[in-house]
Design a protein around this nucleic acid. Sequence first.
DNA 1: CAATACTTGCAACTAAGTTGCATATAGGGC
DNA 2: GCCCTATATGCAACTTAGTTGCAAGTATTG
Lengths: 145, 145
Amino acid sequence: MNERSDYINMLESNAVDPTPLREAVLMSIGEDSRPLAAAEIMAAVRSRMSINKVTLYRILDLLVGKGLVKRLSAGDRAYRYGMAKTRHHQAHPHFVCSRCGVMECLEPGLFCIDIRKFQTNSKRIIKYVDVRFEGICESCIKAQK
Amino acid sequence: MNERSDYINMLESNAVDPTPLREAVLMSIGEDSRPLAAAEIMAAVRSRMSINKVTLYRILDLLVGKGLVKRLSAGDRAYRYGMAKTRHHQAHPHFVCSRCGVMECLEPGLFCIDIRKFQTNSKRIIKYVDVRFEGICESCIKAQK
DNA sequence: CAATACTTGCAACTAAGTTGCATATAGGGC
DNA sequence: GCCCTATATGCAACTTAGTTGCAAGTATTG
Ligand SMILES: [Zn+2]
Ligand SMILES: [Zn+2]
Ligand SMILES: [Zn+2]
Ligand SMILES: [Zn+2]
């Protein structure tokens, strides 16, 4: 998908010192089509170099804080991390498999939120909306046959 | 909202032996307008009687399994529990305050999901859709003024 | 009443993430 | 280069939310 230098560039243009571990973490997230759990990112990084789990969590916090990465809720107790700035820059809903826990990105424009209706009769401040489809993923359907 | 006997009835009509603890747990969930975290339910029950946390989690599992209670994801690492069978029986989106973590129920019909569009170009099986609004709740807005 | 099933409690465990503090590494000033 | 400081990483211990195993209490039934 991207070159190593692209990730270094993303880090630098967000005022993040591009250390090898940060680069590896961002690349692991960026090279996967799905948002990944911390444990999956750890495994991906560890296939190439050594990293401590605290360092990983701190890098994830940093990347989320800088807006490079999005922290997503999968409905279970582990967060998923995905690239924040996609080609189209559009928010999109996600799918989570309730059997294997994998999260997948869905096309944007799958749903419409009548945010005006909501805003008029509410004293809350809405920052964003999270739409999550839950069910069985393709590979789990195949596996059970 | 409801009488004690109503909760006993709900338990019995779902083939659940209405022990005092189960009744207290279901009542704590039913008497609050918001879905509650396990710790909040524990506090509510403990204001009237003694309960062990394992027992609470097992009762919650039981009630969720019987379809009396819904386990909801708040985007953080703790589940929320709300009554499954409301007066109108309709699915509805939820709001979660990113400052204090409170979850609130919103009116149904606030959004529309084009589920057909989704189903046609997907080999996944969709069980349900979860819509979560995130932002700042009314009492947190007041508190900061 | 004995045998059995169901319910609850206690301790220990787990998964995912966090905190405190020590060490390592990278730049600057001289 | 050497010293000083800042940033980055690692390790151990801790936390939160929930789970498991097993023992003890309670109810039910023949
Ligand atoms: Zn799956
Ligand atoms: Zn996505
Ligand atoms: Zn709030
Ligand atoms: Zn609700």
